[in-house]
């Protein structure tokens, strides 16, 4: 099987696996969406009402609600399902052995699986957007257009790749440590706060915003969301995509020594 068709086969396999549990799929979607929208709506309405301000961090109420919904939906796609523990589990239970004898690169195979995990999240995000966007109303600070939508697709794709590559080193620590679940969760907490998934970064103090703009987290959540909401010009967008790809190279490069040293320590029986 050629690399391309193998890649697509892995994606389809992973997607079908996830779609077996349909009740699970719909319940997760519904509860997630309702809980998120209720909290989002309540907290920003209360903040705008109690602060007596029309704009906070450059956003009006409708704009910040749009940001909250979109960062939630794009974030689901960027994180692409729950693959974080799969690599560590394969290292622990020895199922990594069969991948090592396959004539395919291990990380390449895992990325195909990760993409397969995205498909249900993508469907859920689109369905949620269809419900949430009409409920938001119009905003003067966030306008979704066909152009912004077209620019957002590659932004989300590179963000997804960056998240996958960032997740690799904590997973490869499993070659040394007995449990790395905490490291994956840690990465998620940090990236969500510093990447603008919890709050737009324009609400952070000025000095912190400067520092955060130099870190990779901003490309995971805030950048694709701002692109989607039409707040990023074409030049800025191209620079952002380039920076994100640069961070992908850095993160991939950081993962290499973990894999090389770790795989030398690895022992497994049978396949």
């Amino acid at each position: 099987m050629r690399s391309g068709s193998f890649f697509l086969h892995m994606i389809s396999l992973e997607t079908r696996k996830l779609m077996i549990y349909r009740v699970d799929f719909w319940i997760t979607m519904l509860v997630n969406m309702v809980a998120h929208l209720v909290v989002l709506w309540a907290i920003w309405n209360a903040l705008f009402a109690e602060s007596n301000q029309q704009f906070i961090g450059g956003w009006d109420l409708q704009g910040i609600l749009a940001y909250g919904v979109m960062v939630f939906l794009t974030g689901r796609i960027v994180r692409g399902g729950d693959l974080q523990m799969i690599i560590a589990t394969e290292i622990y239970d020895g199922s990594l052995s069969r991948f090592l004898v396959y004539p395919r690169n291990y990380v390449f195979t895992k990325y195909a699986q990760q993409l397969g995990n995205v498909a249900p999240d993508l469907v859920q995000s689109l369905l949620m957007a269809m419900v949430a966007i009409p409920a938001l109303g119009l905003s003067t600070t966030a306008i979704i257009s066909p152009a912004s939508l077209a620019m957002a697709v590659p932004s989300i794709m590179v963000a997804h790749l960056l998240f996958f590559l960032m997740s690799l080193p904590p997973q490869f620590v499993a070659f040394w440590a007995d449990n790395v679940w905490s490291l994956s969760v840690l990465l998620r907490f940090v990236s969500m706060l510093l990447g603008g998934a919890l709050l737009p970064l324009s609400l952070f103090p000025e000095s912190m915003q400067q520092v955060l703009s130099w870190l990779p987290f901003v490309y995971l959540y805030q950048f694709p969301t701002l692109v989607l909401l039409g707040k990023v010009g074409v030049t800025e967008w191209a620079t952002g995509i380039g920076s994100c790809l640069l961070w992908c190279i850095v993160m991939g490069w950081l993962a290499v020594p973990f894999w090389k040293r770790g795989s030398l320590r690895y022992t497994g029986v049978g396949i």
């Binding site: 009740v23 319940i27 997760t28 509860v31 997630n32 809980a35 209720v38 909290v39």
Partner: peptide, 18 residues
């Protein structure tokens, strides 16, 4: 009854935001 409760548990954790 449903054999996998991964989604339900994820749903619970999303409600903890409330």
């Amino acid at each position: 009854w449903i054999h996998t409760n991964r989604g339900l548990v994820n749903a619970f954790f999303s409600t903890t935001k409330l």
